[in-house]
Design a protein around this nucleic acid. Structure first.
Lengths: 253, 253
DNA sequence: CGGGGAGTTGAATGCAGTCAACAAATGTGG
DNA sequence: CCACATTTGTTGACTGCATTCAACTCCCCG
């Protein structure tokens, strides 16, 4: 982990600001919002951002790269709770049990904007909008969790994989326009750990989806030629999925 | 649904106040907190509190009875997201997409305290503590969702059922001390819909758990003689589960 | 007393897991 | 730059948990 406090990039030039929440706040309360950010931080692929049990002091907006949020299980393997993509808000915790219930690890090299948590208390006093902004983010997170829960609990493996790939594809594509594939730094085993399947079975599903022409995936890149068709396999209407996956994700400065 | 605005019970006499969040706020900001409550509302068993797609105007603290939160699936059946018990906070929504992503139905006759959502905006301006209180609740909800996700994704049916029964038991037992069973108004099919199993398989698991002496369940009542033993089957340490399930749940007046 | 919902039981099917071996891709040190 | 090691992906055979379908019982409620 490296921390940079000097020469931070200007917020107004930030490519992901439009997908992040401070984008909206900034117009009205530019200074308050900016004042929250303390530093930019980088982690290398494979580094832990935080561990289950940690008491966090900083929240992060993910600026670049992918992060996996997961819980370690007694049995030795892990349950992936969420894939965090640029624009996502991580590690915000204000409740009584201010202990992280999961760990986070960088899957690719990542850059984050750091916000000391204690400053939130002060700023929210003067800026109630921030409280609603954060509520909105948490609600989105819960909504996505509901969506995952539904898919994982009651659909066959092919639908689960289709759902996850399509979700990630939609989220990543909103960040980059006009490209013919998205970077896809996760492994089939990661997908298995997210969906409660074995990597072997995920592999079989991948091949089946490839044969049907629904996905193209090689060299750490993913392309979905026909989102509607894949949504059908995922057993969720495309517009519904897009509504959940796109939209305000994080405060960003 | 019936609404009562007269002769509301006094908050300080409320049995569940201690498990709810306003319990803490009240000492400092009694009047502000009370002012939020507009009415008590009752629903009969089987009545819907709200539907997926609704734009809510009121949030509720569940005062008595159980409520099921669920999503209807294309396939015709439903995915249960959460069982709400007395003390739980329902239907709070402030984000941009202020549309409910799920429906709620009363499983037993229920009483709720209603809080008009528009008042929250005003009060939070003067009372930032309320913002944190609500954040805390939402975090707990997300944490429980994580916990469900983990259990449902990666454990066999017996562990899933054990996990759910134990969770409900622990939560309900904090509300009533010294009793030899908890009211258990849900059916095996409800459990199946929550865990992504068939009711037939849930039934087989029930019988297996009964034979092992881990649960006693009849006449809409549940008793767990040995929580530690059942936690072992659920593949989660008892103290960890208790930490997630007990504690601040809802603002309550 | 009859009807309907909830719970129970059995047999057959199938989806996904397990084990094992191998191939391909990626990374590392000499 | 090549040789080797490690990780990731691929394939096949076998097993088993959970589903499906169907029939039947129990219990509550009108």
């Amino acid at each position: 982990m490296k921390t940079h406090t000097q020469h931070l990039p200007k917020c107004k030039d930030c490519a992901i600001r439009s997908t992040a929440l401070f984008g909206e706040l900034e117009t009205k309360h530019l200074d308050d919002a900016r004042a929250l950010r303390s530093a930019q931080v980088t982690f290398e692929a494979g580094e832990h951002l935080y561990h289950e049990g940690d008491i966090p002091t900083k929240a992060y907006t993910l600026h670049q790269g992918w992060v996996i949020l997961f819980k370690n299980l007694r049995s030795g393997d892990r349950q992936i709770l969420r894939f965090a993509l640029p624009g996502d808000f991580l590690c915000y915790k204000v409740g009584y049990h201010n202990v992280m219930d999961h760990s986070a690890i960088a899957v690719s090299d990542v850059t984050l904007c750091a916000f000391p948590l204690d400053r939130f208390r002060d700023v929210i006093g003067q800026l109630p909008e921030l409280a609603f902004a954060i509520s909105s983010i948490t609600e989105t997170a819960t909504q996505r969790c509901h969506s995952s829960l539904t898919t994982i609990a009651s659909h066959p493996a092919e639908a689960k994989v289709a759902f996850l790939l399509l979700s990630l594809f939609i989220r990543e594509m909103t960040l980059r326009t006009g490209e013919m594939c998205i970077p896809f730094p996760i492994t089939q085993e990661d997908i298995a750990d997210a969906l409660g399947l074995t990597s072997i079975h995920v592999n079989r599903v991948f091949q089946s989806l490839r044969k049907q022409g629904l996905i193209e995936c090689k060299n750490r890149c993913l392309w979905i030629p026909n989102k509607t068709a894949l949504a059908k396999v995922a057993k969720i209407p495309l517009n519904e999925l897009e509504e959940i996956m796109i939209g305000t994700a994080a405060p960003h400065c």
